[in-house]
Simulated assay, not measured.
Amino acid sequence: MTPTNWPCPNVGGLVQEYALTFDAARNHRLLIVPALFDEGNRLRRLTVEVMRRLDARGIDSFLPDLPGCNESLQPLERQEAASWLSAMTSAARHFGATHVLGIRGGCLFTPAGLPTWHYAPVKAAAIMRQMLRARLLSAREAGREENRDALAKAALAQGIELAGYRLDAAFYRQFELMAPDAAATVVAQDCIGGAGLWLRAEPDEDSAQADALAALMANGIAA
């Protein structure tokens, strides 16, 4: 596993972003678009373990950061949904991807034109509902009363902070309408076994799930 930088188009020009890679210049090269926000943290270990298993099966893989997330130095509040899609399209070109895997919310940003799998895809509206619900619960525990409709209206006008993530109004407007590409091959959780790790309170791992997802991807790529 090698951390590397890659040139990413972003607001104001080209920037350097971070990626984890298993790259031995092999013929099969899988771009992985990570899960978003807190789900990305919960699924990071699973994602990397899948990459290790694919490497053992002779498949290169690449896990780039979305601008504004993880190790990125770009401000999240300056991002737009369109810029994330442009970033992943650029990453696919840069790494010479032959196949793509989106994970959960990352399925919304898988670039077009390559064989694509979506692991437990989710609509953007569902992600926003979950994050709004978490904010309402946090406010209630702190003795504040907030209203879902008022928060959503404010988000559309001036942006919003949810679960520690500051989202611009333009991002919110673009993002909440997004849905995964219906043409992708869907990998449902019951194909992997067990409950989704994004449902756990803290980041965790499951070697059986990593084995199952890696095997499914390797078989699909080789087909």
Rank of each mutant, 00 (worst) to 15 (best):
G105I: 03
G106A: 01
E49A: 00
A195P: 13
A208W: 06
L156H: 09
K123S: 14
E80P: 01
H118K: 00
I192R: 01
P203M: 02
A112P: 10
G105H: 03
R93V: 08
G13K: 04
S83L: 08
L30R: 11
D190F: 11
L76W: 01
A188H: 13
A82Q: 15
M88D: 04
A170T: 15
G68H: 04
S138L: 12
A215H: 10
G194A: 04
R173H: 07
N70D: 15
G196F: 00
A218N: 08
M128D: 10
A25L: 08
S86A: 15
L216Y: 09
P67F: 00
R148D: 13
A19L: 04
R44L: 09
I103Q: 12
P3A: 06
C8A: 12
V15P: 11
D206P: 11
P75D: 00
F62A: 03
Q130E: 11
Y18C: 12
A163Y: 06
A223N: 13
N219K: 14
A87G: 13
A152N: 05
V11Y: 11
Q209S: 08
F175C: 00
E77F: 03
A214E: 05
D206Q: 10
Q189T: 12
Q158L: 01
T47P: 12
L167E: 14
D204A: 14
A87I: 02
E39W: 01
V11K: 12
S72V: 04
D149T: 01
L199G: 11
Q79S: 10
E146S: 11
T116W: 11
E71F: 05
T47Y: 06
L199S: 15
A170I: 12
F22Q: 06
P64C: 00
A152S: 08
N70K: 03
A222I: 03
E161Q: 10
E80C: 04
G102Y: 02
R57L: 12
V11M: 09
A92V: 09
N41A: 09
A154M: 02
L14Q: 13
F109R: 13
Q174T: 04
L20V: 07
L76P: 05
G58K: 07
Q16L: 14
A126T: 15
A134N: 14
G58V: 08
P9H: 06
I127D: 06
A139D: 15
R26N: 09
V122P: 03
M178C: 03
A142I: 04
R29F: 04
Q189V: 07
L73D: 13
L156D: 12
P64T: 02
G194C: 08
R144Y: 11
G96C: 07
L36P: 05
A81E: 05
Y165L: 00
L216K: 03
A222P: 06
